[in-house]
Design a protein around this nucleic acid. Structure first.
Lengths: 142, 142
DNA sequence: CTGTATCCCCACGGATACTG
DNA sequence: CAGTATCCGTGGGGATACAG
């Protein structure tokens, strides 16, 4: 028997209902938490856009990543991809109804972000500014 | 001059108010969109936990990543870290008021996730199951 | 128990060039 | 215009060992 081991102070009184949603959240985050997905969805939130417009709207994204991002979103049923068989090719992307529902949670998150960004940056500042946790900086280790 | 280049069909009639929030969202996502932060916040949402309990609660996280995640959250003012100078050491983590406000947007996202996960998976299924990336399957073609 | 330090792999993502 | 293909650097994150 391992000594000093205390039994659970917390009986399973908390079935942790959030653990289920937590997994779901991670699912969503691995989907939308990448570098570009939210911006794509956000841009499309104002109306359909073709590839190059989307690329221009986001500014900073590479062709490759825009393609990959948009493919992923299409795969998940969040955006549609419509090819107009003209020359030159014209491909329009738009949010699906499902994609549009995503706009709301993202907006909520966005508002939180805007609202608390200052606090966060302030916190970072004071955290970084405070003396090192330096217990014993053994840099001099020869 | 490049030929065939159309000037903006869309005059700057859309100052794109979302671009501001989009950047904010990305900020938040790079903070919370990592692999573990949300789960840590979620776990702490039910009350303070010590390091090992947190580690056990999350199941799958490595010591290293839990430390890093929790440090980041602490730096951003989302959680507090309280060291009880006992032996063995006892460190408790808890959400700050700011951290608690994050719980809401995350919950919204979580509900969206739970609510639409099936649709997404279905979409993925049919996307993956459909024939080839057939480069010549133009919609109306034929 | 609560970290820190190392090594190491590989997925993400940028740059560039080529095709339909 | 809208992609695809290739190369390549960076860094996220796991495993392990060690320290206070």
């Amino acid at each position: 028997m391992s000594p000093g081991t205390v039994k659970s102070l917390e009986p399973a009184s908390r079935p942790d209902p959030s653990s289920e949603s937590c997994l779901a959240v991670r699912d969503v985050l691995t989907r939308v938490g990448d570098k570009w997905s939210v911006q794509v969805v956000g841009s499309l939130g104002e109306g359909p856009l073709r590839f190059s417009d989307l690329k221009r709207a986001i500014e900073g994204i590479s062709q490759r990543m825009l393609t990959l991002t948009v493919r992923g979103l299409e795969r998940d049923g969040l955006v549609t991809r419509t090819v107009h068989p003209t020359v030159p090719p014209r491909v329009e992307y738009a949010l699906t109804p499902l994609g549009r529902t995503l706009l709301e949670p993202v907006t909520v998150l966005g508002q939180w972000a805007v609202q608390h960004r200052a606090e966060i940056q302030a916190s970072r500042g004071s955290y970084d500014a405070r003396p090192q946790p330096a217990p014993f900086t053994v840099i001099g280790k020869k």
